[in-house]
């Protein structure tokens, strides 16, 4: 590969011990990854905004909402699920607080708890899918319901994979420390994002 200097800088990014480079040409590639993640989440939120806008428009132009014959929505299970997902954000934050004090064990424990809560949320979601009493193509409401919650569910899965990846990588000694914790931080940002999307989704899909 051509970019030799870039390769060196990438390794320094991964290690992130900032060992004083021999100056001149080969100082570390500057680390703007958190900024990049924020930009990426802006793009992500625009997909959801687009889909939400579509949902609200369908709702506004439809003579009756939900369309006739749609079974009543159960609120208890999604409500519990919402509480679980929102709390998981706080749990995850504890993990990042731990690694900022160089406590890798704490990071693993709190992230593990977050992952567990994420799995519970997904299971609840699946349970709901099997008990709604309507299918994907029944009417415009059921279609938007499945596509919106399904698309969000995919994001939860992806966030879950990020958390598990961070836990896996934390097994290697000195991977994360108070000075270097991009991985946990990025995973947390993403998880908060997924969380916020769910709150909006819950409001417009279940409560509105």
């Amino acid at each position: 590969m051509q970019g030799s200097a870039i390769e060196t800088s990438q390794t320094t990014l991964d290690m992130q011990h900032g060992h004083g480079h021999a100056g001149g040409h080969h100082e570390a590639h500057p680390d703007h990854r958190i900024f990049g993640i924020v930009l990426f989440l802006i793009a992500e939120s625009m997909i959801f905004l687009g889909l939400f806008a579509a949902y609200l428009t369908f709702r506004a132009v439809s003579p009756e909402w939900p369309p006739e014959g749609t079974p009543e929505m159960e609120l208890l299970l999604p409500g519990i699920n919402t509480i679980i997902l929102i709390s998981s954000s706080f749990v995850m934050n504890q993990g990042n607080a731990a690694i900022k004090k160089n406590n890798v064990g704490g990071l693993r424990a709190w992230f593990g708890a977050t992952a567990l809560m994420g799995v519970v949320f997904l299971c609840g979601q699946l349970y709901e899918y099997f008990h709604t009493g309507f299918g994907l193509t029944d009417n415009i409401f059921t279609s938007t319901f499945y596509v919106l919650t399904g698309f969000h569910g995919l994001h939860v899965c992806f966030g879950l994979m990020l958390i598990l990846a961070v836990m896996w990588r934390s097994l290697k000694a000195d991977r994360y420390s108070s000075a270097s914790h991009f991985g946990p931080e990025a995973a947390e940002l993403y998880w908060h994002f997924v969380d916020v999307v769910w709150i909006v989704l819950f409001l417009i899909l279940y409560l509105l």
């Binding site: 930009l39 793009a43 279609s143």
Partner: peptide, 16 residues
């Protein structure tokens, strides 16, 4: 950054 994702949303719905 802000407009392309909305096209993606439209295409996902179209695909369905």
């Amino acid at each position: 950054l802000v407009s392309t994702p909305v096209l993606a949303g439209a295409l996902i719905l179209l695909c369905f």
